[in-house]
């Protein structure tokens, strides 16, 4: 690993200022599960590593029925999936946070880090998309907000500009009749990168029979995690049944733009999008009915 300096930032503004001063040669350290490997394998270079874990808002995990959920960008997965309110209201987030790596990865890895790593295969991003998360980005003197589906722009690239870093994620409170799920396909039962990941959320009507709205997002089938709005929209007003799920799955399949690599061929990935979209929708509806 190349040599670098290490600083613990006092607050978000401090971190953003350091980033700006370093002109692209500084990196944010949250859980480190991606950053340290990337530095070690010389996939990225840095003169300065800025540890943001001591910043309260970056570590925060809080829920209120009016405001919804705030997830500090560095809050590790193991805190998220043990949080009673997250367990109760954000099942898609629970799915994703509990299958990123193994237990020892979840002890460090954060959703913010997963997002900033901007892998097309990131597990948490489809889940965040279907939960309509908003990213709060800190600058040296200001803040801006970006919907999570717009955060990643290319493999490993995000909307973050110079002197900007992701401070937290805000998820709205789920409406009545809401359910969500994130499913991924991997060859083993743990530890793999998603060959395909599918997040789905639905809001059912008062009778829990028809779908009022739905969101579907895909991982590992495009240069960025993919929000397939038309697949969700196609379910509006439909009865929540296998036939409707299959229709949405077909739209998701068509939207996928997978490549072939060591983890799967384009053909296999497209096939899996169909299978997993149906399964994720079925699970989201099942949860909405609870």
């Amino acid at each position: 690993m190349q040599p670098f300096r290490y600083i613990r930032a006092h607050n978000a503004e401090h971190a953003a200022t350091l980033l700006q001063q370093q002109d692209g040669r500084a990196r944010i350290l949250a859980g480190g599960t991606d950053l340290i490997v990337a530095l070690r394998e010389h996939r990225i270079e840095a003169d300065l590593v800025i540890d943001v874990k001591g910043i309260p808002e970056v570590e925060e995990l809080s829920f209120s029925p009016g405001e919804g959920l705030r997830i500090g960008a560095a809050a590790p997965c193991h805190r998220i999936y043990r949080h009673a309110d997250v367990l109760h209201h954000y099942p898609g987030i629970i799915d994703a946070a509990s299958l990123i790596g193994g237990i020892q990865i979840q002890g460090r890895a954060s959703l913010g880090g997963n997002l900033c790593n901007a892998s097309p295969a990131a597990d948490s991003i489809p889940a965040l998309i279907v939960h309509s998360a908003i990213c709060e980005i800190a600058l040296p003197q200001s803040r801006r907000r970006v919907p999570v589906e717009e955060f990643c722009v290319a493999p490993g690239k995000t909307v973050l500009g110079r002197g900007e870093f992701l401070a937290s994620l805000h998820l709205p409170p789920p409406p009545p009749g809401f359910g969500a799920a994130y499913l991924r396909f991997i060859p083993r039962n743990e530890m793999d990168i998603a060959v395909v990941g599918v997040g789905a959320s639905v809001q059912l009507d008062a009778e829990r029979r028809h779908i009022r709205s739905a969101r579907i997002a895909l991982a590992a089938v495009a240069p960025t995690p993919l929000f397939v709005q038309e697949a969700g929209d196609a379910l509006i007003g439909a009865e929540a049944n296998e036939e409707a799920f299959a229709r949405a799955a077909e739209i998701a399949r068509a939207a996928a733009r997978p490549i072939s690599d060591m983890r799967g061929t384009a053909e296999f990935r497209r096939h899996l999008v169909g299978v997993l979209t149906q399964r994720a929708l079925a699970k989201a509806v099942e949860r909405a009915n609870k």
Binding site: L29, G32, I36, K53, R108
Partner: peptide
């Protein structure tokens, strides 16, 4: 175990 949490020590910096 880092503060009681299971971690991979290869993915933690010594300074942390």
């Amino acid at each position: 175990l880092l503060d009681g949490v299971l971690v991979n020590s290869c993915l933690v910096l010594g300074v942390e």
